[in-house]
């Protein structure tokens, strides 16, 4: 059996625009070459403008998303406020590092807008919680090589919400079409200061 990271397949990407961020994922869940489901979203909501994408081993995508739902709910109850993307980033980092010698096989991607500063924020992590603060985009999953290529080629600074949607969608769809373990439709979130748009993309069904 191969690496736990590419048993189930999947891809996720986040991008920064002008006063907006976008995060997108594919919808496939497979076991090696066999596709089990074409409706397995990998992006989870943790505050009105904060989203976390999880790729990797599907069981850990489930476990980690459940774990952070619990942790973020506890945070909201204690603090009586929503968690900021920056705080969530550090929560994700420390929680993953707790399992330093028996990690969750996930590569998280975080995207959001900080409601206090109004500034967009994205970051990515490795499976043991090392944070990658990027100013442009973050990619993860079995199509990460392809995503690096498409994002590096298509992305430009200060894209507006609609242009950012087009960019992230084209980058993701083109990337997953060159990866056998990802695809089967996609989900895209465009996050603006006080508006979130969710779109479903059909993409190639093979």
């Amino acid at each position: 059996m191969g690496s736990p990271f590419d048993i189930n397949g999947g891809a996720c990407v986040a991008m920064v625009g002008k006063d907006c961020v976008a995060i997108a994922c594919d919808l496939r869940l497979g076991m090696q070459a066999l596709t089990i489901s074409n409706n397995f979203p990998k992006i989870f909501n943790f505050a009105p403008s904060t989203y976390l994408g999880l790729t990797g081993l599907a069981t850990d995508v489930n476990t980690v998303s459940d774990l952070f739902r619990y942790k973020v709910n506890m945070y909201r109850l204690r603090e009586e406020r929503h968690i900021s993307p920056q705080t969530l980033a550090n929560l994700v980092s420390s929680s993953l590092y707790e399992k330093r010698f028996g990690p969750f096989f996930v590569s998280p991607v975080l995207a959001g807008i900080n409601q206090t500063t109004g500034k967009p924020f994205i970051c990515g992590f490795d499976s043991i919680g090392c944070i990658d603060f990027a100013k442009d985009f973050i990619v993860s999953g079995t199509a990460s090589d392809q995503l690096f290529g498409t994002c590096e080629g298509l992305w430009e600074p200060d894209l507006g919400a609609e242009d950012l949607f087009e960019t992230i969608s084209q980058a993701l769809l083109s990337a997953v079409d060159r990866d056998a373990l990802s695809g089967w439709g996609a989900q895209v979130y465009i996050i603006e200061k006080d508006k979130v748009t969710q779109r479903l993309l059909k993409g190639r069904q093979d």
């Binding site: 048993i7 066999l34 409706n39 397995f40 599907a58 069981t59 995508v61 489930n62």
Partner: peptide, 25 residues
């Protein structure tokens, strides 16, 4: 719900396990 031994959970309209997957899906 489809759940495998790794505890991956997926909500699906139809599912199978084992060899049945290859023949029935």
């Amino acid at each position: 719900y489809w759940i495998d031994y790794l505890a991956s959970l997926a909500s699906v309209p139809y599912a199978a396990h084992g060899y049945a997957q290859y023949y029935c899906l």
